[in-house]
Design a protein around this nucleic acid. Structure first.
Lengths: 221, 221
DNA sequence: AGGCTTCTTTGACATAGGTCAAAAACTCCA
DNA sequence: TGGAGTTTTTGACCTATGTCAAAGAAGCCT
């Protein structure tokens, strides 16, 4: 089993499937490589298939007419994206772009739907993936609407500490400006909030490394 | 075929399924009746099944510690809700409450998953439902983050005109305070924006009926 | 119809966060 | 290692929207 197969087998979408099915899946996936900062698809493009990140990082985002950007998801290896048009028809509702050099697997819609129809366990896995994503959106709406920016930042930092094993510090996986767009604000505001939280003794910032000085205080935001 | 069967056959979730499958589905659905303003489930409750609205209206919402409410969905007849825990495990991520007297069908998780495993077309329908909901969340995040309140209101009014056939007016299906919570604001702000849009000649408000005076102007928000 | 409850509007005020502009720090190559 | 390009920070200012309080309307029940 090579790296890519291992990635598939470990991904939430394909976990627990028999080897035979994994082979079928791997057989229809097409590898594509992208440079850094390159568009994968645009809002409004027809959705002829979906992707899974093999290596690198990808953002899914919306743009306002005025040029403000709202990031919907940040994705890394093993995470699929662009599935919505596969099952609902209609074009992509948002844009996708690489944040780093990236390698992606592309699964053509028609072939994938055939696979799903033949394999109920794959269908259930895909349902679990979409359900998880819905849960993430619930959180994002909650954050945008019910929390102020410091609260969103605190929540994101606490989320990152879980992702990363580290107990008392996290390393931002994207530039701060992108983080601001994920949190629904701008880089200036984010910068100010980093400063304020630092002087309140909640965190300490060293470049992309944030030390969580007062975890409890963060939770209270 | 009685009313309830017709509702099932017309719903997005169960449309296009053979009569035999509809019978199986109807057989596992349990009818439940609720008064107005009654909780159906709370955030954190275990999800032992999902619901479909037969009659009445239901809201799905989050509450902040401070008591502010953000509505995630407003649902009417034929629309399912509470599916996320069915496929992803974990408790409900939000609360559900009736806005009117309501009749619901409850589908127990285990039995429904068995049905889905046996019937790929049902699985694909459910995938389409979740994909549609993801699309709605994308729109909601976009509205909250990239539009100001007048823009959100304009978007919602234009959305309502499509729902309802009427060409030049819409009838609000919820109290204005609830609409404010759906748009991520409060009733005072919404009230002021109704007033401003009226004096700008965009709309005319008569109780729950809103006349769209300048459709084009609304689109530009 | 009267009266109670709930919903909506209005006013006065406070503020989080957006915006624009410029300085300062970083990155990354050649 | 120099320097162009990018990212981040800081400052000054502005405004959309939140908040609190109270008055008005509207709906509903008996």
């Amino acid at each position: 089993m090579n790296d890519k197969d291992a990635l598939l087998a470990d991904s939430l979408l394909f976990s627990g499937l028999p080897a035979e099915q994994l082979r079928e899946i791997a057989a229809i996936g097409l590898t594509r490589k992208y440079g850094k900062g390159v568009s994968i698809f645009f809002e409004g493009d027809p959705g002829i298939g979906f992707y899974m990140v093999v290596a690198g990082r990808v953002k899914i985002f919306k743009m306002s007419p005025a040029g403000k950007e709202q990031i919907l998801h940040l994705l890394g290896p093993g995470e699929p994206f662009g599935e919505v048009p596969v099952f609902h028809g209609n074009p992509f509702p948002a844009n996708a772009e690489t944040l780093t050099e990236a390698e992606l697997l592309f699964f053509p819609r028609v072939k994938f739907v055939q696979l799903i129809s033949a394999h109920p366990s794959l269908a259930l896995n895909m349902l679990a993936v979409l359900a998880l994503r819905l849960r993430q959106f619930v959180t994002q709406v909650e954050n945008l609407s019910l929390k102020e920016v410091p609260g969103r930042l605190a929540a994101y930092l606490l989320y990152l500490t879980e992702e990363q094993q580290n107990q008392d510090r996290v390393v931002l996986d994207v530039p701060k400006g992108q983080l601001a767009n994920l949190l629904g604000t701008g880089s200036e505001t984010l910068s100010r909030i980093f400063a304020k939280m630092t002087e309140e003794g909640l965190i300490r910032v060293e470049g992309k490394t944030i030390y969580l000085v007062d975890r409890q205080g963060l939770k209270e935001r």
